[in-house]
Design a protein around this nucleic acid. Structure first.
Lengths: 334, 334
DNA sequence: AATATCTGGACAAAACCCGGACAAATTAGC
DNA sequence: GCTAATTTGTCCGGGTTTTGTCCAGATATT
């Protein structure tokens, strides 16, 4: 069990006080304690002075249980399930009927020290599944990666490297464009379904996520959408290649607090500076704009001039959004 | 990692409380009990405290009965049927759903117009949800439509009209491009998830589904993928804009029996005839090619010359594939 | 000192069960 | 074509179980 903490900075070291857990899960403090008292839903560590200290796993667990309950499950039925089974139940409940019956394809059981290697193995296995056009195996591997890792870790440690490798292999000619298409189409579905794993109360701040006109690759944007939905944002995902005017209009109508743009290819598209400028012009100070992706480097100067933020990693983006959210909330409260 | 059959089993272990069943079937709690009381539609197990515990079979049964009722069956006639018989009844009903107004199975009061109206209401509600950028409502409506109708009927009677209306409203300027993007992105996810609803044995014949180079709209292709997966095909979905060479290569490597291309916009793209010709040249007789979509009309002559089939509706495509499947199987057996 | 958390218990709302009733819609009988 | 009978979805009321919230007194944190 104490396996992947070693690799994940956002692992399961018990740290969080109960109020943070309540805020993140949307549950009340009382309810979390009641669940623990009655069904041992979680078993948080304690501080020297008996205070509960929750891990990220605990939070994930509570979040899943909340979703399962929303779908009509009884606490007694799900309280003792493992995280893995819980995910299964939830995806079964939220989607319609989903099944995952054959044994995991992913071979070697993994040891703490080999965790990083295990990720590389997973990426390799995924590459292999794509090369042999075995969709089912590919899907199994994705599910498995997700079960064994938290969402942010999975996206950054597994999926991002896989995409890099996929792109390079295709460019080198080891894989055909058809393979890349197949993998991309599948991932598009897989990532799109993330939203349904989360529980929305309807009160989450909104964030518009898309790519500017001419940028046809949407997976980066989708990864952002999946990531921020875990942190309690509600993504308004517009797909690829949205004109600046439309992005601004969407943010305005929906009251979004932030916009995230993904720039991957081509980097020298002359529309990029035009669109960014146009977008910035139409926004007031109530909306923050973030951009990411390899294709932003040629435009860094402009981006800075426009007051757009350019976090250098998904983690940085995540932190920036958390701060924005906190700041925004207090500002609203005043 | 091993045993999760306990919870996600397809089997008949009684587990689910009544509200979950209601949630999944779209029936009310009262109604489920009433049906049990009057016709013993299901006979759920009970907990220690007399609460009903439904199995997955029970849920499936109730879903089918609901659909059969929607198609005009009377409860007394179907309440005691076995699961298999129920499936037969439902599939029979959905076959005739959009043709043959005077099918003898329907009681006198059955009016297709009423159903039409209900579908139109649903489409209107979906349009409204999109206009107000209410993703959650939009998703609810989609789920609702799917619960009330079988997959093929839903796709043709609800989703296709919705897409038409969405396109027209956007062209007329009643909706912004942003709205269309939002709806499209959401539908992309929704349709993509269809594949996972079906249970594949791995022995289904494969069909490559995509759009040719330059055709960026993929929803039509995805609808085809969803549709054929219901009929026991395994779709290899490649996403939009795949070069002819790659389509052929994919069919070859995967051993697909068929290829389906969706042509929607633009219709006058000069690459269409080139790509179609190129594709046809690289295929031998073991692969059938189908095309669909509004953009195929200018190329009908070429399509016929190339020996490509152009069914005029999803239903026709479905039938053609069923025949192909039957024929192909026997031919292989020889 | 004000705020947060802990434990244990009490309490109230919600969910479920059952029998039965009722109104709208559908079917049957004339 | 027009009642009368039947089917069907919904609702009510009283009783049980499950679940969410609240309280009180004690301890911690800031």
């Amino acid at each position: 069990m104490a396996v992947l903490e070693t690799i994940s900075s956002i692992g399961s070291e018990p740290k969080h006080p109960i109020r943070l857990v309540a805020h993140r899960t949307g549950l009340t403090v009382d309810l979390i304690r009641a669940w623990e008292k009655r069904y041992q839903v979680v078993d948080p560590a304690r501080s020297d002075t008996k205070r509960r200290l929750y891990s990220d796993h605990d939070i994930e667990r509570l979040r899943l249980i909340r979703i399962a309950k929303q779908a009509g499950r009884r606490l007694a039925d799900i309280a003792s399930l493992s995280l893995e089974d819980l995910r299964d139940v939830v995806s079964e409940d939220t989607q319609y009927s989903d099944r995952l019956e054959s044994a995991p394809v992913y071979p070697t059981g993994w040891n703490p020290e080999g965790a990083r290697e295990a990720e590389q193995d997973l990426v390799d296995a995924m590459m292999h599944a794509v090369a042999s056009m075995d969709q089912h195996a590919f899907d199994q591997l994705l599910q498995e990666g997700l079960v064994n890792q938290s969402v942010p870790v999975f996206l950054q440690q597994t999926l991002a490297p896989f995409l890099r490798e996929l792109g390079e292999s295709t460019r080198r000619g080891e894989l055909r464009i058809a393979h890349e298409h197949l993998a991309t189409a599948h991932l598009r579905t897989f990532l799109g379904a993330f939203r349904f794993r989360e529980n929305f109360t309807g009160h989450e701040p909104k964030i518009v996520i898309t790519t500017p006109t001419g940028q046809l690759h949407e997976l980066g944007a989708l990864m952002v959408a999946a990531l921020v939905s875990v942190d309690g944002w509600q993504p308004l995902y517009l797909g690829p290649s949205t004109p600046a005017d439309e992005i601004a209009a969407c943010a305005k109508q929906s009251g979004a607090k932030a916009i995230s743009l993904s720039l991957t290819y081509p980097a020298d598209d002359p529309r990029i500076p035009t669109e960014l400028t146009r977008l910035a012009q139409q926004l007031d100070g109530s909306v923050s704009v973030f951009v990411g992706g390899q294709a932003l480097h040629p435009h860094l100067e402009l981006i800075e001039r426009l007051g757009i933020e350019a976090p250098t990693s998904l983690d940085e983006l995540r932190l920036a959004l958390q701060e924005l959210r906190a700041g925004r909330l207090t500002r609203n409260a005043v």
